[in-house]
């Protein structure tokens, strides 16, 4: 990764697009740009050529903090046996089952 050329590479940005009002911004890819303004403009050209979006967020990839995939099990599996967190866990008489 750390070749001499990499230092002159424009930083990497992650792109999030809201496809229409009322929906979340969703990650759709990444791109290189010198600054935030350029990143937005390029995100528009690269990811919304067919009206895929009504709003764009960009954030430098280096700013994203992610969970460790190696700890996926430790992190997420404890929730597996907490079935009582779901409404379907509770059996109710038919007449009130749609509450």
């Amino acid at each position: 990764m750390s070749t001499s050329t990499t230092q002159n590479e424009w930083p990497l940005w992650e792109v999030f697009v809201r496809s229409k009002a009322g929906l979340d911004h969703k990650h759709c890819g990444s791109l290189h740009a010198a600054d935030a303004k350029m990143a937005l403009q390029m995100a528009r050209d690269v990811y919304t050529r067919r009206q895929e979006g009504t709003s764009i967020w960009v954030v430098q990839s280096s700013q994203i903090v992610a969970s460790d995939p190696g700890e996926k099990g430790m992190y997420f599996d404890p929730m597996e046996d907490k079935v009582y967190r779901h409404p379907t866990f509770y059996e109710l008489p038919e007449s009130v089952n749609h509450m």
């Binding site: 990764m1 070749t3 990499t6 002159n8 590479e9 050209d45 690269v46 050529r49």
Partner: peptide
């Protein structure tokens, strides 16, 4: 024009996908 612009976009999606594997864009262009 639209088609050629798409090709540029496709190149960028793919370079980005390859970069997730730890190879820089400049290395690939090199």
């Amino acid at each position: 024009l639209a088609k050629v612009q798409d090709e540029a976009g496709h190149g960028l999606y793919l370079y980005s996908a390859a970069e997730t594997l730890g190879t820089s864009r400049d290395q690939m262009l090199d």
